[in-house]
């Protein structure tokens, strides 16, 4: 726990020193404008919820993936990754603490898209099930942090994480039902989507904004947390395997 807090404290200090890391939040209002304009033009106010949540979830995923990848690249660039490996600290909680901070900060994207909807488009948004909404957000943040760790572990093996970051974004936006609900995706994609926590989160968040009572909320929150825990366990295992491999191959200090 202490290492998790150490990682979180370090990331907070870095964010204060380099606001450029929050660039994803600059695009969130623009995406909201685009999505809401399409919704309004087509006379589908029922899809406003999708248009508001999608940019926020994109910010959440994008920022988490960015920090997960850049973390290793940046540590290698400063030569601190080798020194980190040489400390007795377990790196998994340290990295997870860092991602957790960025994921929490990325929730500002939700505030932004909400403001764009109400102020610019005059769309009245009301959270019909605030408790479920809050719990789902919390579960999503935790699950996101667990999954980002998988990326961090894999990025240890890569000389440049940027290619993977860019390639991994859009498949997950689709499989995670970020804009288009999974139910509307081609049938062959749905089984894959069920193991992507973001698809459960996105559906649940949308349902919590609508007046109708959501189906099986506890089970669905459980799925988000369960998949998040599975991601966290996978990332913990992967990091130890990958670090041992990097120590064997001499690729701890790889870069460029």
């Amino acid at each position: 726990m202490r290492l998790l807090l150490t990682g979180a404290a370090y990331q907070l200090r870095l964010l204060r020193r380099s606001p450029g890391d929050l660039i994803a939040l600059a695009t969130t209002p623009l995406l909201t404008v685009v999505f809401l304009a399409v919704v309004e033009h087509n006379g589908r106010p029922d899809l406003a919820v999708n248009a508001v949540l999608a940019p926020a979830l994109i910010a959440l995923w994008g920022m988490s993936l960015l920090i997960a990848g850049d973390m290793i690249d940046a540590e290698r660039a400063t030569g601190t990754f080798e020194v980190l490996v040489a400390t007795p600290a377990r790196l998994w909680p340290l990295f997870t603490g860092r991602v957790l901070v960025v994921t929490v900060v990325s929730l500002l994207g939700l505030v932004e898209s909400w403001l764009v909807a109400t102020v610019v488009f005059g769309v009245p948004l009301r959270v019909a099930h605030p408790g479920l909404f809050a719990v789902t957000l919390l579960a999503t943040v935790l699950a996101m942090s667990g999954h980002a760790g998988v990326m961090t572990s894999l990025f240890v093996l890569s000389r440049s994480a940027r290619i993977f970051q860019n390639s991994l974004s859009f498949p997950f936006y689709v499989l995670g039902g970020v804009l288009v609900p999974v139910a509307l995706l081609p049938a062959f994609l749905r089984p894959v989507s069920t193991v992507v926590f973001l698809s459960w989160s996105a559906d649940l968040l949308r349902d919590s904004l609508r007046p109708a009572a959501p189906d099986s909320p506890v089970l669905r929150v459980g799925m988000v947390l369960g998949l998040g825990a599975a991601g966290a366990a996978l990332s913990w295992w992967l990091l130890s395997v990958v670090l041992r491999r990097a120590r064997r191959t001499g690729s701890i200090a790889l870069g460029g």
Partner: peptide
């Protein structure tokens, strides 16, 4: 053990000297 690498490797430039030491100290418990 403690390790000191040559050149610019091994410190976080955007943090202060004290913040660096606090961070690394925490990693040693």
């Amino acid at each position: 053990i403690g390790i000191v690498l040559g050149g610019d490797r091994g410190l976080y430039g955007r943090l202060t000297a004290r913040q660096n030491l606090r961070h690394w100290g925490a990693l040693y418990g």
